[in-house]
């Protein structure tokens, strides 16, 4: 099988609630793949099924070529997992946690010692190897969990919302670690509800909403479905604006803004198009007094596909709740 992760029609219902209503995924080997969706979309449930801890109610899924229901043992041999909530033993040191992790994955003590140093360096925690995890910050715990997941050199690394609850600095550190991983050829499957995260890290993004994947493609391709960038060109008079509108229509979908003096153009490749347009405008005697363009974000894609905004979720009540629930522990 050519995919590192492949899923077809995954379903999961909890009592009467359908958390997943047919999820299809195609994750090429050696790429970073992001499952993007708002809270409650079904990301954690999907990942739980893929890492063999949740029994699907329907559908099939393969990880590293093994069926997650038929051969969970085989799947577990080939994956590393960072769960949404911490899963470490805080009473033990990082080394002790790594040692147990290695032993239950059948590594020898020598292998563990050797690789422990390497993975702790990768996440920048080598100085804290013999500290109890109780003394780690939230960001350090998250990085440690990534290190631990990498100890066994897994084929596929799963990460559920790797940066939720982290401060901006800690988030950037985690992003850098994931970018570093890209070079090693490991397949990374991450879930997120931050579109910046998906845009920055992922080769492919699957947008999930209410238990269904509504789109799956590279971020650029998803954004291209919106028809391109939006350019705003403000002129000095309505007459000039109308002339510019005629000109702009040759490059894409152009219209006049409500102020009557601004032309709005949706077209591909705004950074290159803008200078050309300005030159032509001047040549036809139109003076553009203000210009800018906006590139579409995954949020716009989400909005187009679902009619709702991803942004509503960010920094919202649910994040706050989760942070505080975690802090309480």
């Amino acid at each position: 099988m050519e995919y590192a992760v492949y899923a077809e029609g995954l379903r999961k219902s909890y009592g009467g609630v359908e958390a997943l209503r047919g999820v299809d995924l195609h994750v090429p080997r050696g790429t970073v793949y992001g499952l993007l969706g708002p809270n409650g979309a079904g990301k954690t449930t999907t990942m739980g099924i893929l890492v063999t801890l949740i029994k699907p109610s329907g559908g099939r899924a393969f990880v590293a070529g093994y069926d997650v229901v038929e051969e969970p043992q085989r799947v577990r041999e080939h994956i590393g997992v960072v769960f949404q909530e911490p899963t470490v033993d805080r009473d033990l040191t990082a080394w002790q946690n790594l040692y147990i992790h290695g032993r239950i994955h059948d590594l020898s003590r020598n292998e563990i010692e050797h690789r422990a140093r390497h993975v702790m360096e990768l996440v920048g925690l080598e100085k804290f190897l013999h500290r109890r995890l109780r003394s780690y910050s939230g960001g350090m715990i998250r990085r440690f969990e990534i290190a631990r997941a990498l100890l066994t050199e897994p084929e596929v690394l799963f990460m559920d919302e790797p940066t939720v609850g982290l401060d901006p600095q800690a988030r950037t550190r985690v992003w850098e670690v994931i970018e570093e991983l890209k070079k090693t050829g490991v397949t990374v499957f991450l879930t997120t509800h931050y579109m910046e995260e998906a845009e920055r890290l992922c080769d492919t993004v699957a947008i999930i909403d209410r238990g269904v994947v509504v789109a799956e493609a590279p971020p650029e391709e998803l954004k291209a479905r919106l028809g391109g960038d939006t350019l705003y060109l403000k002129t000095a008079s309505p007459a000039e604006a109308r002339r510019l509108l005629k000109l702009a229509a040759g490059y894409g979908d152009a219209r006049l803004a409500e102020d009557g003096v601004t032309v709005v153009l949706v077209a591909r490749d705004a950074p290159r198009l803008l200078p050309t347009l300005l030159q032509e405008a001047r040549a036809t005697g139109v003076s553009v007094i203000e210009s800018r363009y906006v590139r579409p974000s995954l949020n716009d894609v989400f909005l187009m596909l679902t009619g709702r905004s991803l942004r509503d979720e960010e920094g919202g009540w649910s994040d706050w709740m989760r942070l505080h629930m975690r802090a309480r522990r």
Binding site: V51, L53, R76, E77, V88, H101, I104, D106
Partner: peptide, 8 residues
């Protein structure tokens, strides 16, 4: 979860 997801 760390234990359950291991192949041990």
């Amino acid at each position: 979860k760390e234990l359950l997801v291991s192949p041990a």
